[in-house]
Design a binder for these strands. Structure first.
Lengths: 229, 229
DNA sequence: CTGAAAAAATGACAATCGTCAGTTATTGTA
DNA sequence: TACAATAACTGACGATTGTCATTTTTTCAG
């Protein structure tokens, strides 16, 4: 799937297209986008964009996962979102005309396409369906973040871990969850040591199996119960 | 300022208009909006819209403050945002075509105008400047919420209190902060008792004065220091 | 103005969770 | 394949913060 050559990615046969806002909302010809975009291969742990910089365009994930994170006062990462195949990232700051408030970095090898700011804004202006899709996306995410804030504020670390594992299982789909303990702790909002201890608890409770880095959920029911609701 | 008659609020002489998205982004005649909107007086602690219901339009605050909050699993409120004069609320779920994920309730007596869903969407479609303003607003708020999540996850309650007091002081402007201890605790994400204890600490440290319900910040510098950054 | 209801405040106590310091295991590369 | 670097894990300990129970103060309606 991964194309290190940077060359032959095409929207028309993009495997991520069906999950993408382009696939869902845009009647425009895939080849229209094809002509505008460039594509690139990213190594693991490579930055896509950085907090403080100004957006030059948007990124469309063809393959691989990307973490979106903010930094707290002492520089500690807080992962806000993990984007997967088909997602477009980096367009929020384009609309707000502010520098990025978050950074993005690959969690694994990725193929990522890039569409220029002007081209993308032009598409938005001339294509109401795409535009509505984007607005829908922005609004949906605002709702998600309200829930995220509420979980952070009201749930215990144990509950948040259960909740986050459900989300991660969904993101990773058929694959096993594959994150460093530090990244996972930064997603849940806790110390790495606390996360490790809780994972051990969950393992002993028969909720998951730990294959070093990779996690296999074996009892999702229990997770739902612990997460609450 | 408050108009209990529901009758004579007009966009052209709306005192909140300069702070509003209409004032900032929309070249359209104020009277255009005037014809579409209806206005109403709300008592203190009156719901504006409720989580789970579907939006019928948007609300524009002419006078007074409104809390936007989600509910955790045990029904505990988490205040996500406090909206003041000039703000438009309730339009996010209109775009996402989902039921509201948050509720809104007045914190004091309010005058609130209402614009119908169809009328508002029509304005958005036909007025690119307004539309861009809305998109800018949505994007900006997403950035703010990323920071909110980070603060919740990484700061201590004491730091969050300091941080929140700065935000609240900004929202209340010339007025003194005027919230129940419970609402304030639900904004900061802590127990009411913890908040009360910390407010006492802050008072003893000469940071603020407590006039029963109302809080007067006397040393903002110290707050910044405690809040971090 | 008064009494009931709501809100604010206080005290005691325990559990969760973060920090620090150190060990073991894994990974990637020369 | 070995070794250096990184990540995972363990233990000890204390501070922060939530909970529960109770008292005091404030608010508001009649």
């Amino acid at each position: 799937m991964l194309d290190k050559s940077h060359k032959n990615l095409s929207c028309s046969n993009c495997s991520a297209r069906k999950d993408s806002i382009f696939g869902n909302y845009c009647e425009c010809d895939a080849t229209d986008v094809d002509d505008l975009k460039s594509s690139a291969y990213y190594k693991k742990n490579q930055p896509v964009f950085l907090e403080g910089s100004f957006p030059r365009g948007v990124y469309c994930l063809n393959q691989g996962k990307v973490k979106i994170f903010a930094r707290g006062d002492e520089g500690k990462e807080q992962i806000i979102h993990i984007a997967k195949e088909g997602e477009i990232i980096g367009f929020r700051s384009m609309f707000s005309e502010e520098p990025f408030k978050v950074s993005a970095s690959t969690l694994e090898e990725c193929n990522i396409c890039f569409i220029n700011k002007e081209d993308f804004l032009n598409m938005i202006d001339t294509n109401p369906t795409l535009r509505n899709g984007i607005m829908k996306e922005l609004s949906k995410e605002l709702g998600d973040r309200a829930m995220f804030i509420t979980n952070m504020a009201q749930k215990s670390v144990r509950e948040r871990l259960a909740f986050s594992l459900i989300i991660l299982a969904d993101i990773y789909g058929e694959e096993q969850i594959n994150l460093t303990r530090e990244d996972m702790a930064n997603f849940i909002g806790t110390a790495t040591e606390t996360l490790i201890r809780l994972l051990k608890d969950f393992k002993e409770e028969g909720i998951l199996e730990i294959h070093t880095r990779k996690l296999e959920i074996t009892n999702k029911e229990k997770l739902f119960k612990i997460a609450g609701k």
